Computed example of a mutant assay.
Amino acid sequence: MRVIGLSGWSGAGKTTLLAALIPWLRAQGLTVSTIKHAHHGFDVDKPGKDSHTHREAGASQVLVASSRRWALMTELRGGPEPVLAELLARLDPVDLVIVEGFKRDSHPKIEVHRAANGKPWIHPEDPAICAVASDVPPPAGLPHAALDDIPAIGMLALRYAGSSLDRPGQRQPREEP
């Protein structure tokens, strides 16, 4: 599987970009999955549901299945947070995995930058940033696309996505499809 990250400060538009990018990639015939890192406690389950009751009772994992979808929830119960490589290994194979968050990891990333945020650029502090999606030209001459140019951002994502098995320093830009 190939992996590309979207990295940027809160409010830069990462999730909005992701929501537009996925349909474009699917229209190119690609299968896409995402991994989102949450910096705080989150819950995908609701109190009052049987699965929530199972989890609250102490189950390590709860799998909920229906004719439309299934979900597996895992409680860490004080265990270490899984690293990105472990999470990638749990996904079914797809053409491209887009990672939102995990900005300290070394997978290739596109920086999402919005000038109105007033936040500094993440690149060059993060050498894994290989391209930029922004409403202003980026520093350091990185390849870039306008925030609203979904096809151009999609092409950057495909060009710079690395294998989930790549190690830092071994990534090479991919040929455009």
Rank of each mutant, 00 (worst) to 15 (best):
L6D: 01
L21A: 06
D166A: 11
H40W: 02
E111A: 04
A133I: 00
E175C: 07
A140T: 13
Q170L: 15
L147I: 07
A20N: 07
I35C: 04
A59C: 08
T31H: 12
G5P: 00
L88N: 01
D45P: 09
G78L: 14
K14Q: 00
V44L: 15
L158W: 11
W9C: 07
E75A: 15
H54L: 14
V32W: 14
A71D: 07
D126C: 09
H123N: 02
I98G: 01
V97W: 02
P177R: 09
M73W: 06
L158H: 05
L165W: 15
L76T: 06
I4Q: 01
G169V: 08
G169M: 13
R114G: 00
V94W: 10
Q170A: 14
H52D: 08
G141M: 06
P138L: 05
S164Y: 03
P120D: 12
D126T: 05
H54D: 03
F42C: 07
T34M: 11
I22K: 06
I150K: 04
H54M: 15
D43W: 13
Q61V: 09
L165K: 15
G48W: 05
L147F: 12
L84S: 00
L63V: 15
P168A: 14
T53M: 15
Q172I: 11
P143Y: 12
P108H: 04
E111V: 02
H37Y: 04
T34Q: 09
H123M: 01
T31V: 10
P177C: 03
D166V: 05
D92W: 12
E81T: 11
R159Y: 05
L147K: 00
G13L: 06
F42Q: 06
W24G: 02
F42L: 10
A140N: 13
A115Y: 14
V83A: 12
P47A: 14
R90N: 13
P108A: 10
P173A: 10
